[in-house]
Design a protein around this nucleic acid. Structure first.
Lengths: 332, 332
DNA sequence: TTCCACTCTGTGAACGTTCACAGATACCCA
DNA sequence: TGGGTATCTGTGAACGTTCACAGAGTGGAA
């Protein structure tokens, strides 16, 4: 009825707790006969180590907490999330560690995260989509707990290491491509200006266009489809003669596409449209979106690796930036 | 340097461990003066209870594990997931419980989940997208751990309680609508036949059409966009004169839409197209999809409630089915 | 033979809680 | 006044591990 403990295994194998513990943790200095007997006893009794008891003495939690910093409603809109989560679960499982998910949408949430970490219930923290100025970042930094971010945290690039795609370079790629296609009046719909994707994709755009990137041709969105629609409407009103648009995300591009269609503009004939991310939606619009592919899997792998390195005691792990790739489809 | 323990709080407040513990757990029989002193001491010392120590003695884990049963690549394709996860996190947080995510894609994964649960590290299990015949279900049932599923588990409806939308009724709604629009030859693209959405949406379709639902007009997909594309192609080849298609998911519908367009069919003029889910993609296609809305938030809430009731000791909690809603847009 | 190093094992203490119990005080009612 | 009840508090034991230490056995070198 009761779950078997290390004592039961020891008794069944005819050894002491200490020896069983040594086998469990792969210590040296265990005779093969003892090891064999213990392994059989573990199988027979169906013994599973109690992590709570272990954590209590080792002061290690055996888990990592992933913190989603978006306000509640927006969570998971970004396809980036799923890849990072999936990768984290898999890599952590390899070490017999588990992943706890928490949301940090408001102050109460943040408090809960801090309490959790303070309680020693996580060996590390993985930040997702943290915005500039998030108080959580400094609080975590003060606790000296291993932390990493998937995508840079604006203003704290040197505090929290990160893995990210080359946001700026990717935006340059797309802008250059639009220029090469002979487009003369290229507009941009950016992301929120407190996120790396928002800021750096605009920088890349400006890098290529130089003085031609006028304020008039720039509108800001918040990554949602709806914001893409309305930003596009504002752009059309202000500059009806634009002949290309670079949206900082595929989702916003799909919104822009609706507006363009409603305004009677043909894509790509009248207006070329470029996206960013190469998320699922890029394939489902008509015409399919020309976009910039983020190496999501690689970014996720690197993010987790950085965190595990930190947990393993590395003093300072450098951030990683991974190149993007232009995917040409039908919209530009 | 070291984290404060309950002893430190007791010392600071001038009481004993026991009294502090009582305050922590909201027991009766604590004087207001003691309570006040302890609360101040907690604030001063920055004390946070150590869950490991607590779990060790209470035999409660303070966490729930959510198990994603899809093979690795498909995880999170379903927008259902995000809502359920988000809701779970929030409701659990209210009780100061946390959510651990695990993947059960292959046998090794399932083993890990079982070990985790067996180790007593979860108070309950929330199953997501579990397919018929998954060995995990019976294994969990044998362990008598509180378990719930978001969406029924085919063949185990009486073993694992669930919350789900009225799959069959929703499919009836859509089919009836297509008939009312005067469509004569209605085809269906189903989901996988080992999932409730696959089976029951087809049943609803057949309920309405009766004998007119011929095998020739039914094709199976696997929820992906690509499978929608190819199923549509097979349908067109076999029955070029069809005038309506009901796809069991919006994502598959968006695939079908591409194929229809490539084949020169106008939607909805030549072929009416209905989806299911009312997921984000339904708004981003052109024309926007007429679809069946699943009350995702409500389903998620009910799923979590059932699990919490079970954890609280309820002997048997009935499953819940929630009605769907027809959303008419442009595709039908 | 003696000593040291290496291998292997068992034991007590500690990790930070909760819980059951017992003791102390205060109050009310007969 | 006495006894019962309700309120409040402290204490020892237990939860299931790991870790440091000590002790025992073996083999080889001096």
């Amino acid at each position: 009825m009761k779950r078997p403990t290390i004592h039961d295994v020891a008794a069944a194998a005819g050894v002491s707790r200490g020896t069983v513990s040594r086998v469990l943790n792969g210590d040296r200095y265990v005779s093969t006969s003892a090891r064999l007997a213990i392994e059989r006893a573990i199988a027979e009794t169906g013994y599973v180590v109690n992590r709570n008891a272990r954590s209590l003495v080792t002061q290690r939690a055996g888990s990592v907490v992933i913190v989603l910093s978006e306000p509640h409603e927006k969570i998971f809109e970004d396809p980036n999330y799923s890849t990072t989560i999936r990768t984290s679960i898999r890599r952590l499982a390899e070490r017999d560690m588990s992943l706890v998910m928490m949301i940090a949408g408001d102050a109460g949430d943040r408090d809960r995260v801090l309490r959790y970490v303070k309680g020693g219930h996580a060996d590390g923290v993985l930040l997702l989509s943290t915005h500039a100025g998030d108080p959580l970042v400094d609080a975590l930094d003060g606790m000296r707990i291993p932390a990493v971010s998937c995508g840079a945290v604006i203003g704290r690039e040197n505090v929290i290491p990160y893995a990210a795609c080359d946001e700026r370079g990717g935006a340059q790629q797309m802008t250059r491509y639009l220029v090469e296609q002979g487009r003369k009046k290229i507009a941009m719909i950016t992301g929120p200006m407190d996120t790396p994707g928002g800021i750096q994709r605009l920088e890349g755009f400006a890098d290529v266009l130089g003085r031609k990137a006028s304020k008039k041709l720039i509108e800001h969105g918040d990554w949602t489809r709806l914001s893409g629609e309305s930003a596009m409407a504002r752009l059309l009103e202000r500059s009806p003669d634009l002949d290309a648009v670079f949206a900082a995300s595929d989702v916003m591009a799909s919104g822009a596409l609706s507006t363009l269609r409603a305004a009677g503009r043909r894509v790509p004939e009248d207006v070329a449209l470029g996206g960013f991310d190469d998320s699922a939606v890029a394939m489902s619009t008509h015409p399919a979106l020309t976009t910039i592919r983020q190496p999501l899997a690689e970014i996720a792998e690197e993010t987790v690796r950085i965190l595990l390195d930190l947990i393993d005691g590395a003093e300072h792990v450098p951030s990683v930036t991974i190149p993007t790739m232009l995917i040409v489809r039908d919209s530009a």
